Amino acid sequence: MAVRRLFLVIAFAGVITSVHPYTRPPPRETLFIPPTADSSAPEQVHVSVSGIDNMRISWITKDSVPAIVEYGTSSRAYNSSANGTSSSYSFFLYKSGHINDVVIGPLKPNTVYYYRCGSDHSSPEFSLKTPPAQFPIKLVVIGDLGQTGWTSSTLQHVAESRYDMLLLPGDLSYADFWQPRWDSYGRLVEPLASQRPWMVTIGNHEVESVPVIHKPAPFTAYNARWRMPFEESGSTSNLYYSFDVAGVHVIMLGSYIEFDRTLISING
């Protein structure tokens, strides 16, 4: 028994001596992406799933434009179109641009679609790829994305992964009350978020409500800018929802949602 104990101590000591200390990389510069010169051009374009075979296209313009998306499976040959809604919000002295949401479909799985936001024929063309209907599917999961040089590095790795869908469970823009950073964030992620569905939910950086006075309402910017398929899944809040993709049932549950303890089962 004594020999065994000695052996374990030696083995454990060997493990300890082989561990190298972790050196935290220094912070990188904070990014801010300026707006486009054309006030009617779509920017901050991102897509998300909306039901089994539909996709939601969201974008922002400074000017009021028709909330319409033209789309098809060939570049510049749009044989379908859909109309949606436009909204905006205020945050103290800040007033958002026009936030447009349009649901397109039904769409074929694992298919590239080309689309144009708004009715201006000179608007840029975007493309998206719908998720597959069955396995295999490649999901990317990231969190605390923010807007720094490290964000750019992370997005580059994501782009190289040839993924089908991105899941982001909270802490998107790190705007933390400064609303123009939400706009900057939308421009930063647009090259990826306009091509694959980004399914997101909230973290503490999305709360943005002043303590005591509780104004503005919590999650005002997040709810206005990143509308997820909560109604399609039977949820009553954009902060939690679920959806099916390629045989996987995904539950997105924000950690800052109020809950009723009386609903917790005894065995829970």
Rank of each mutant, 00 (worst) to 15 (best):
V3K: 03
R4S: 05
R5P: 01
L6Q: 09
F7R: 15
V9M: 03
I10P: 00
I16L: 04
V19K: 03
P21W: 04
Y22I: 07
Y22S: 00
P27G: 05
T30Y: 14
L31V: 11
P34M: 09
A37Q: 02
D38H: 01
D38P: 00
A41H: 01
A41L: 07
P42C: 07
Q44M: 15
Q44L: 15
H46S: 13
V47M: 14
V47H: 05
S50V: 14
S64R: 13
V65F: 09
I68W: 04
I68S: 03
V69Y: 11
S75E: 13
Y78M: 01
S80P: 09
G84V: 11
S86R: 12
Y89P: 07
F91Y: 15
K95F: 12
S96N: 10
H98G: 03
D101I: 15
I104W: 11
P109Q: 13
R116S: 05
C117T: 07
C117V: 11
H121T: 00
E125G: 01
E125N: 02
S127R: 15
K129W: 00
T130P: 03
F135K: 04
L139W: 04
D144K: 06
L145T: 10
G149C: 07
T154V: 07
Q156Y: 12
Y163M: 10
D164K: 09
M165D: 07
Y174S: 03
D176E: 12
F177R: 06
R181I: 08
W182H: 07
S184T: 10
L188P: 05
V189H: 03
E190F: 06
P191A: 08
W198P: 06
W198M: 10
W198V: 12
V200E: 06
T201S: 02
I202W: 00
N204Y: 04
N204T: 09
H205Q: 04
S209Q: 11
S209E: 08
P211V: 02
I213Y: 07
K215T: 09
P216E: 10
T220M: 10
R225A: 14
W226T: 14
R227Y: 11
P229T: 12
P229G: 04
F230Q: 04
E232A: 15
E232H: 15
T236E: 15
N238K: 08
S242D: 08
L253D: 13
E258R: 05
L263W: 05
I264Y: 04
S265E: 14
S265A: 10
N267F: 05
G268H: 11
